[in-house]
Amino acid sequence: MSLQLRLPASRAFDYLLLVLASLALWAGLAWIAGPDALSGPGETLARAADYLGSAAFWKHARATGTAFGWACLLSLAGGAAIGVLIGMSRLAAEVGEPILGTLYSIPKITLYPIILLVFGLSLSAKVAFGVLHGIFPVALLTIGAIRNTKQVYLKTARVMRLTPVQTASTVLLPAILPELVTGLRIGFSSALLGTLIAELFASEEGLGFMLIRAMEAHKVVDIMALAFLLFAAAAAIGGLLLAIEGRVHRAS
């Protein structure tokens, strides 16, 4: 018990250790690779701070945020809807799950030309690409969650003569909520990846666009600073969702 009480402090210490170790590793690598390949922590963080203070950066960040927000929303809503629809019938799950799994595993980056040809250089191309990445993991997790729902719940729903819609909204959704939060986290990160990749290849604004421009100009410090900011933001939100997830799983 005393161990558990001490845990928060020691966990903070663990995080500190991880951060310090990463910084040391980073500085070491930068020293070995030289300033042409990797910029050191000090320089990079200073540039990242510059970015945070500049209006141009926030304009691009807002563009990415808009695309990502839509992609995330559509992935989650669409994925959960597909998951519930397919998951509620055993046959549909058996048929659909391998297909969705395969769609999830293909290198979707190769589909980017099609997305561009269909949507052109636009916000919808970015959103579509984000959704393409995010929707399958959410659907797969939802199907898995429904399969693992206790049969008793479903039988109870049948005994109470609930309609499929009622079953989904009053029995299934609450039962799979913890897994849905996991889906939220995975869908969030996949959609972010998709949105950024879309911006890397073809776009006129956004953080991915800033990155590719820095790459083309071979500005190592800029690349590193942007990568750092993206990593930090993604890791922070990921960590937050993970904490929520842990709480929901424990509560249920």
Binding site: F188, S189, L196, L211, L230, G238
Partner: peptide
């Protein structure tokens, strides 16, 4: 958080 960051960058 590894897979939540865009490694491709």
């Amino acid at each position: 958080s590894y897979y939540s960051v865009p490694t491709f960058v």
